[in-house]
């Protein structure tokens, strides 16, 4: 029996029952919630026996040119169902959404990755540092407006961090 895809409309209904005024938009594919309520919603979805989303399957971000989305794929093992949750941040220069690491510790690494490559800051994440790129890397490369590094330098390591002429911030 394949995984049941919990449609966004159903999910929105369920969230609204418990936490009114949190759903921003609900489509069959996903449900978008208010960023400030995200942790509450996630905690509810994790602990609710009908949702039982104890497993954060995937967490990532999308640059929608004028805003950022953080996308959460949630999985229940017991009920074998999958739901998609989204939050949006409309501040394109400095996007910030709350961290779900307190709800699912599995989000720690995925949020660090999203922060590193996409530049979404996850408020409340204890160790939000760069993970693939080094501290001091200019910009966040997965953003759509990241075409080259500041100062006309093309991406790539011409020198290693810590060498003369480079900011002395190595990899920790």
């Amino acid at each position: 029996m394949p995984t049941r895809f919990l449609s966004g409309l159903e999910l929105a209904q369920r969230i609204e029952q418990k936490l009114p005024q949190t759903v921003v938009e609900a489509l069959p594919e996903w449900v978008e919630v208010q960023p400030e309520k995200l942790v509450d919603v996630c905690t509810f979805l994790r602990d609710d026996p009908d949702a039982d989303f104890r497993f954060l399957a995937s967490l990532t971000g999308v640059d929608r040119l004028d805003h950022f989305e953080a996308v959460y794929h949630l999985q229940s093992f017991r009920l074998n169902q999958l739901g998609v949750l989204k939050v949006k941040s409309w501040d394109h220069d400095d996007p910030e959404v709350p961290s779900v690491a307190p709800v699912w510790p599995g989000a720690v690494l995925q949020e660090r990755e999203t922060y590193d490559l996409m530049g979404i800051r996850f408020a409340g994440h204890a160790g939000l540092r760069r993970i693939f790129l080094w501290e001091g890397f200019p910009g966040h490369p997965l953003r759509k407006d990241w075409l080259s590094m500041p100062g006309q330098r093309m991406p790539g390591l011409h020198r290693f961090p810590g060498e003369p002429g480079e900011p002395d911030v190595g990899r920790g």
Partner: peptide
């Protein structure tokens, strides 16, 4: 693709 994300199993397995 507008966005192409790989949910890498062994990367996330490292979180524990």
């Amino acid at each position: 693709p507008f966005r192409f994300h790989i949910r890498a199993a062994s990367y996330i397995n490292l979180s524990a």
